[in-house]
Amino acid sequence: MTASTQSNKKLITYLVLGCLGMFGFGFALVPLYDIMCDTLGINGKTATTAQAYDQQVINKSRTIRIEFMAHIQPGMKWDFGPTTNVLEVHPGELVKTAFVAKNNASKRMIAQAIPSISPGLGAKYFHKTECFCFQQQPVDGQSPADFPLVFFVDPQLPKDIHTLTLSYTLYDITEKTLGEALTGPQAQGVTP
């Protein structure tokens, strides 16, 4: 093997490894993105599990406006909306509200609600002790359902945030979970 083919081979090896590394990096961006969003709290994503209520003090001097929004995946034959559009709450106060949904299709469907908070930086100060978005929600055809939500706003919420908008988008995941959800134990939380 001559000197120049040897140095070619070495360089090619590095470059191919670089390519494979970058291909892997593309996929590594997926968990990296989630970690970044979680730690920096920049994506408006709230926690996916219930948090315990641990507030001793309610800050009555501060009032936060909480707005609720509801969206439905296009083509999904449901009604979905908040029972109250706006709530004025004090940081630290445990608040109970609900969304209502109705499955207008003729068959049983399973829905998943995905929450999002705006402004995104407020997301990590919005704690839910109970949320319909923590579980999949099976609802019979032509039936209504109550979706309860219990939350409190962290008193650490930055001073410049006066309003938090909580938006839920409802997705039809019937097909994705058909097998387990219809034959296995029913997901809790829905009593029509």
Binding site: C19, L20, G21, M22, F23, F25, G26, F27, L29, V30, Q73, Q112, I114, T169, Y171, D172, I173, K176
Partner: peptide, 25 residues
């Protein structure tokens, strides 16, 4: 270019093989 290849691969599996890289649901 490998990152682009990764992105189109994710689109492919999301669309045809049931992964949820870009699917909020």
């Amino acid at each position: 270019m490998p990152v682009l290849a990764g992105a189109v691969t994710m689109v492919l599996t999301d669309k045809f093989f049931g992964t949820s890289f870009f699917d909020a649901a």
